[in-house]
């Protein structure tokens, strides 16, 4: 079985972001970037299947600027076998990503495609679903567990208030949730070894795809600032305010 994993380069969730002066987006200059945390979980799952000899190869794909090779390198250091960068400097929306991943899948013929359930920058939660629809493959979203048996995968999905188990016949697209696994660190020796693993490069045009922008961001706003703290006179007042104002006690 061959697995393809999509990985996105996003702003590090631990850094504080700033808006561009005109409010049209985030100022990415000099910001620390990292692999989308949900994609790390997808890579980890693929690498585990590879270690169990259930998968024979793990291909990681990223769509983005040159610097996205760093994200691919991280995935290679975690244990993926080879990388593919589909290079574009344009802002890119879920539909375009899905189209490009579909094109890559047609060329690479994986049996299973793993993605994060969403990227933590735009929180779209659309790419996996669109990709499955375009390929006409089975899909399992929000996976908190998966087990491959022959030509099928059993996926436990996290749904509101519980879980749902579905069985997908391969080929399939699975988007992974937070509790699926705990991704490993890219260790220093493996980072050095990953340097020797191949990363192929393509342009969207190679697949006959034009990256279109269909959505326009009208405005971004920062969340409201935190209010200053207050001092209360007594424990009774504290309890009262926690109940009436903060709403944390009932």
């Amino acid at each position: 079985m061959r697995i393809m994993v999509a990985v996105k380069r996003v702003v590090d969730p631990n850094v504080k972001v700033r808006l561009l002066a005109d409010g049209s987006g985030i100022d990415l200059t000099g910001l620390k970037m990292t692999m989308n945390p949900f994609d790390e979980i997808a890579v980890e799952e693929a690498v585990r299947l590879r270690e169990l000899a259930i998968a024979s190869e793990v291909l990681v794909v990223s769509i983005g600027p040159d610097k996205a090779t760093e994200t691919l390198r991280t995935a290679l250091a975690m244990g993926a076998d080879r990388g593919l960068l589909i290079k574009t400097d344009a802002p890119i929306e879920p539909l375009s990503v899905a189209k490009l991943l579909r094109a890559a899948a047609i060329e690479e013929k994986p049996d299973l495609i793993l993605l994060g359930k969403q990227a933590i920058d735009d929180d779209c939660n659309q790419t996996g679903q669109m990709l499955a629809a375009q390929l006409g493959w089975a899909q399992g979203t929000f996976a908190s567990n998966l087990a491959v048996e022959g030509d099928a995968v059993t996926v436990t999905r996290e749904v509101d208030g519980g879980s749902q188990t579905v069985r997908l016949v391969l080929p399939a697209v699975i988007t992974v949730d937070l509790r699926l696994n705990e991704p490993r660190y890219a260790s220093l020796p493996n980072i050095m070894k990953a340097k020797k693993k191949p990363i192929a490069e393509r342009q969207p045009a190679d697949y006959g795809i034009v990256v279109e922008q269909r959505l326009e961001i009208v405005r971004l706003e920062e969340p409201a600032g935190r209010l200053a703290g207050i001092k209360v006179g007594s424990a009774t007042e504290l309890v009262e305010r926690l109940r009436s104002e903060a709403g944390v006690l009932s």
């Binding site: 000099g30 220093l188 980072i191 050095m192």
Partner: peptide
């Protein structure tokens, strides 16, 4: 966080792994 571009990709990844640990 001032990355002046003088670090190699490997150096940045190593630093990130150590920081995460």
């Amino acid at each position: 966080y001032a990355d002046d571009g003088s670090l190699s990709q490997e150096q940045r990844l190593m630093r990130d792994s150590c920081r995460a640990f």
